[in-house]
Design a protein around this nucleic acid. Structure first.
Length: 318
DNA sequence: ACCCAGGATGGAA
DNA sequence: TTCCATCATGGG
């Protein structure tokens, strides 16, 4: 059932219960959203405040978008008119009901705690190329730094998109053909570091059709994963992020350092488990919506250790 | 100066 | 198989 909605060419609203917009946009699955406080001078300076009350701006495909949330209503505003808003409905997954997803979770205390701590956290459905390129750039980088690298990449090589009058310019994520035409030095200038040659080679293979990118969605998960891992710089973790965040394989459970820590501390405290053993545990324990479970555990762990620092007096939204 | 960040890779043990 | 140094860069 599609949610209640109100669509006009440049403005749309949806009624979606249990959707924490800010938490979702700021949960480390997408990297191009910025919080804005309208009518104040400190635009983009406070991520925590916008998480609950704010407005967010970003680019989806070739469109600049401003999103906001009020109660159970999600609102979107664009510059380029849309006769059809399915591109954003897909991206935000507004038709997904969270209740049935959470009902599939195993009833263990750790997961229940994580869910309770992040109500309304969702999975987005992103463009495969942007997702792949973004996570190639993510290895051993903090999320804020990943954002910065991607911003430089878009500003340097992405097409400009229409923005409101007087607004700072915005850019689409550069396609594989455009990045394939870059030099390694140009990518390093975006601070991609040792990931630059990986991104360049991935762009070349996707642009050349060596990797059949669109056909991945129709394949079994293990085949799609193997195809992604054939790219240089793409191991199990990055492949799983693309499978989950872009292709929507719901059972996939990406294991990064935070999730590894969550599994160790919440499920096997004091029992030295190898990463391999923890990965095998994750493959059988979390059920058909393991991807959602992973996102809750990731965000729960990250929030527990990141926000106390960011919340120091005078450091945020003075 | 030191450690860590949504890792992956090639070589050594 | 598992372990380990290395990769580039910025923040705490």
């Amino acid at each position: 059932m599609p949610p209640d909605r109100c669509l006009s060419p440049c403005v749309a609203t949806w009624r979606v219960p249990e959707y924490a917009l800010g938490t979702t946009l700021d949960s480390g699955q997408a990297f191009r959203w910025r919080p804005v406080q309208l009518g104040t001078m400190n635009r983009g300076t406070c991520r925590l405040e916008a998480r609950t009350t704010g407005t967010w701006e970003g680019v989806v495909g070739t469109r600049w978008v401003r999103l906001r949330q009020g109660g159970e209503e999600l609102g979107a505003e664009t510059v380029v008119p849309s006769a059809d808003w399915s591109w954003l409905e897909q991206y935000l997954q507004v038709a997904v009901e969270l209740g049935p997803v959470l009902a599939t979770f195993p009833p263990d205390a750790a997961l229940q705690t994580a869910v309770a701590a992040c109500p309304g956290l969702r999975l987005l459905r992103q463009d495969p190329w942007e997702c792949l390129a973004s996570f190639i750039l993510s290895s051993t980088k903090q999320i804020e730094q990943i954002r910065q690298i991607i911003e430089r990449l878009c500003a340097g090589y992405g097409d400009a998109v229409a923005v409101p009058a007087g607004h700072e310019p915005a850019f689409a994520f550069p396609g594989p053909e455009r990045l394939a035409a870059c030099s390694e030095a140009e990518l390093r200038a975006c601070r991609a570091g040792f990931r630059a040659p990986y991104l360049l080679e991935a762009a070349r293979r996707v642009a050349a059709g060596t990797l059949d990118f669109t056909a991945l969605a129709e394949r079994p998960v293990h085949e799609a994963r193997a195809a992604l891992m054939s790219l240089p710089g793409v191991g199990r973790k990055i492949a799983d992020c693309v499978l989950l965040f872009a292709y929507g394989f719901a059972t996939v459970f990406p294991v990064d350092v935070w999730v590894l820590r969550a599994l160790r501390e919440l499920y096997f405290p004091g029992r030295r488990m190898t990463p391999r053993a923890l990965l095998e545990f994750s493959e059988t324990h979390f059920g058909p919506q393991a991807g959602y479970a992973q996102q809750y555990l990731f965000h729960y762990m990250r929030r527990a250790r990141v926000t106390p620092v960011a919340r120091r007096p005078g450091r945020c939204c003075a």
